[in-house]
Design a binder for these strands. Structure first.
Lengths: 145, 145
DNA sequence: TATTGTTATACTCTATAACTATA
DNA sequence: TATAGTTATAGAGTATAACAATA
């Protein structure tokens, strides 16, 4: 009885990280679609809930999204009445959620939490928290932007 | 002294999974670039080392790459003399590494292993293996393709 | 000079549809 | 009828460069 061929990625953490991340992102995209939000848009709403008054450049730095790509994202959320602007100086504007934006954020947050519970059900809450801690230890933002 | 604003993604495993995965993929891309390989191409070489004789469709199923996107990848590797084909029947061809392909694969593998050691240095080997096991438990391939 | 927001644009990755030739 | 390989193409997501207005 011949041994089964070995999995070439058995020792490569990066491979499993990537495959799981892609699967989770795909599920999150489907989860948020009924709310008319993409993951990046929902993330912006989350950041503005906890950090109201940030400019769009600052949000981009926080999320790893470039200025040039933030512009259409913010414009779309503004157009839907989810955000409002207040001029800080002539070139930058503080952003915050409108009441509608906060309702949408809360709905997205609930859907996102349900998605997390579904995707990571095999892990106990402590195991999940430990995993988050490990991933944060390994992720050094300066490697990106 | 006001409390710092909370990180909105503190409890979202998916977010940290994604940020780390993007950083790791970026580093891997840079690591493999001097060998003239993209991560997907290196993965194909790895799979053919452990599973010689697979067709390109089978490799695509293994890696989660669609048939249509496998065609140019395989064509490029063929053109560089890294792969050879043997007709199984009129429509499918078994693939294997050429001697040059095996040399390139070995070089990519060594670079990839060094990349992993660098990226995941904070984790001991047992911790790293446990993390791989956890990620594999959470990843159900049928969610994708 | 440096920064914010914006536009235009290009590049990669991924997804779908359709075709051929084979089975 | 179904499958392997291919081509064409469209859509995201992301990257750089350049500009106007402002600091």
């Amino acid at each position: 009885m011949p041994a089964p061929p070995p999995d070439p990625f058995k020792t490569f953490l990066g491979y499993h990280l990537r495959r799981l991340s892609v699967a989770v992102m795909s599920d999150l995209t489907a989860t948020l679609a009924p709310l008319g939000l993409k993951p990046a848009e929902a993330s912006i709403l989350y950041v503005l809930k906890s950090h109201p008054g940030l400019t769009q450049s600052e949000i981009g730095k926080f999320l790893g999204i470039q200025r040039a790509n933030m512009a259409p994202l913010i414009a779309g959320l503004m157009q839907r009445g989810l955000l409002e602007r207040r001029s800080v100086d002539g070139r930058s504007q503080a952003l915050k959620l409108t009441p509608t934006g906060e309702k949408t954020r809360a709905a997205a947050w609930a859907a996102n939490a349900a998605h997390e519970a579904r995707m990571f059900a095999p892990l106990s809450p402590p195991a999940r928290q430990k995993l988050i801690t490990q991933l944060r230890t390994l992720w050094h933002p300066h490697q990106n932007t």
